[in-house]
């Protein structure tokens, strides 16, 4: 049996239901030996987050050994490393190094990192964006990426993660995605909460940490403060929950995901020329 999955017009961090459904399908189809076809006919572009999202999808499909075919990919999209790798996914019998999906152009940087901390990414942010965005936003971006990188390394024990930063529709987008141990799974070792939304909220509180040595728990709290100061927007997904916070309007959306994410994805956005 073959299931055709229609990808969205723009792959970004806006509506993630479709992508999460794809990940869930890939898992079950691998188990049931069914085939998956990705239909790219509607897809016109990938936002900066979209590059990292599809890198995680690529890794997941390769790892799950889901038999995948791609149809109706535009030539323009094939210039993108991760799209090209997805097109040739049948050639990958084992997971390649994540840097295979690395991308860089004047307005974008995407890096796949295997283990450890990569300080070169934040240094590259300076070189790439210092003349395009304010020092405040650039600093906030670095603070965010440094905290996410450490969280991914220390807590999720993911062997790899993807970071991205880029300019998109008058905004600066930055974030980190991993497919490791989720925030709720880690926090429930130490704390008890009703559901995954509450675990995600807990992760932003000052002093919440599961670390036994080198205790701390300030990182996510401070990165929240910087988002507030710069009127940013934050989306955090982990396991069964999602939180979206819009600091300019002080709105917040929290919901249980229809399809779970076996990892943690964090996306931040700043409006350029706003505040």
């Amino acid at each position: 049996m073959v299931k055709t999955f229609l990808l969205p017009q723009v792959i970004d961090d806006g509506r993630l239901d479709a992508i999460l459904k794809l990940i869930s399908l890939a898992k079950s189809y691998s188990h049931e030996k069914k085939k998956l076809t990705l239909d790219w006919s509607k897809t016109k572009a990938l936002s900066p987050a979209g590059y990292a999202i599809m890198s995680c999808v690529f890794d997941f499909l390769v790892e799950q050994k889901t038999e995948t075919k791609n149809i109706k990919m535009s030539k323009k999209l094939l210039d993108i490393a991760v799209v090209s790798n997805l097109k040739n996914i049948q050639n990958f019998t084992s997971l390649p190094a994540p840097n295979i999906n690395n991308t860089e152009n004047p307005n974008l940087i995407v890096r796949g990192v295997e283990g450890g901390i990569n300080t070169l990414f934040t240094e590259r942010l300076d070189e790439k964006f210092s003349d395009k965005i304010s020092e405040d936003i650039l600093y906030a971006g670095k603070l965010i990426i440094n905290e996410l990188m450490q969280n991914s390394h220390d807590h999720s024990t993911a062997e790899r993660y993807y970071m991205y930063a880029g300019l998109w529709n008058g905004e600066f987008h930055i974030g980190l995605l991993d497919m490791g141990i989720t925030i709720p799974a880690k926090l429930e070792q130490k704390y008890t909460r009703q559901n995954d939304i509450e675990y995600l909220e807990l992760s932003f509180e000052k002093g919440s940490s599961t670390r036994r040595q080198r205790t701390g728990g300030f990182g996510l709290y401070y990165f929240f403060e910087f988002l507030k100061e710069n009127e940013g927007k934050l989306t955090l997904l982990s396991r069964n929950a999602q939180i979206r916070r819009y600091f300019k309007t002080r709105r917040s959306q929290k919901n249980i995901l229809k399809y779970p994410l076996p990892g943690t994805w964090c996306f931040a956005r700043f409006i350029l020329g706003g505040k």
């Binding site: 300076d126 600093y139 670095k142 603070l143 440094n146 450490q150 701390g216 990182g219």
Partner: peptide, 11 residues
């Protein structure tokens, strides 16, 4: 260099 890390400064 810019540090931009609460962990580094805290520790």
């Amino acid at each position: 260099i810019t540090i931009a890390s609460t962990s580094f400064f805290d520790e």
